[in-house]
């Protein structure tokens, strides 16, 4: 999961219970309108696909984001979008290099191996797959990434270079070179040779997850082969 995933901020009690640790922001760059890539030094090991909770103030409950950097990289990268009027994300967006950040231990079980399989994401839901690919798990993976706008196809160049023809980008509101015009479910629906074996990992909005899961099940994929990470 790459988006906010906490319930109402201050209601969630003491941040100390979450094992928050202080760190300093390395950089915090707006990579698309309202979407930021935050970077801080990696002090704890994590598994590709895991999440960390972050906050700028111990009184504000952390929100959880998927790590989008490789497991051996020097820095931890987090991709997040700003929720207008939200309690935390506008404060995150104001962070600069050197600012204080509170970070929870990595957690979560949205994990994968290096066997053949499919990754399907929308928007910032791409984050765990970036981490997996940068950790060496992308060699036999297909990736389908959907977004309304082409600017939301984060890491497009990276995946086009690494996965080559196994990377498909879909866009519903804009056309572009090499971009499928339409929802990712439309692209998936057109694939006659979609395998029914292998694992399918889904990350994005609940709507996408439910739609894709239904589509895959209708195509004969056992539901046990489908693992989902949802935004909430």
């Amino acid at each position: 999961m790459a988006k906010r995933r906490a319930t109402s901020g201050a209601l969630l009690g003491s941040s100390d219970e979450t094992g928050l640790r202080e760190t300093r922001v390395t950089e915090n760059i707006e990579i698309a309108a309202g979407v930021f890539l935050l970077k801080y030094p990696r002090e704890r090991d994590f598994l590709p696909g895991q999440v960390v909770g972050i906050t700028v103030d111990r009184r504000i409950a952390p929100r959880y984001y998927s790590i989008s950097s490789g497991k051996d990289e020097e820095f931890v990268d987090l991709l997040y979008d700003v929720v207008p009027g939200g309690e935390l994300t506008p404060l995150l967006a104001a962070l600069r290099g050197g600012d204080l950040l509170f970070v929870s231990p990595p957690s979560g079980a949205f994990l994968d191996g290096d066997e053949e399989g499919w990754w399907i994401a929308t928007g910032t839901g791409i984050a765990p797959f970036v981490s997996m690919a940068k950790s060496g798990l992308g060699g036999r993976k297909h990736l389908v990434h959907g977004s309304r706008l082409a600017s939301g196809l984060y890491y497009r160049k990276y995946f086009a270079a690494v996965l080559k023809e196994r990377y498909v980008s879909c866009c519903t509101k804009e056309a572009g070179d090499g971009i499928f015009s339409g929802r990712l479910t439309a692209w998936l629906g057109q694939q006659e040779d979609l395998p029914t074996s292998g694992r399918f990992l889904l990350c994005g909005s609940a709507e996408m997850v439910v739609d894709v899961r239904d589509l895959l099940i209708a195509r004969g994929v056992p539901f046990g082969n489908i693992s989902s990470e949802i935004y909430f």
């Binding site: 046990g224 489908i226 949802i230």
Partner: peptide
């Protein structure tokens, strides 16, 4: 986990 995605988190 296959029934309830929340199990991942």
């Amino acid at each position: 986990r296959t029934l309830m995605p929340v199990e991942n988190l």
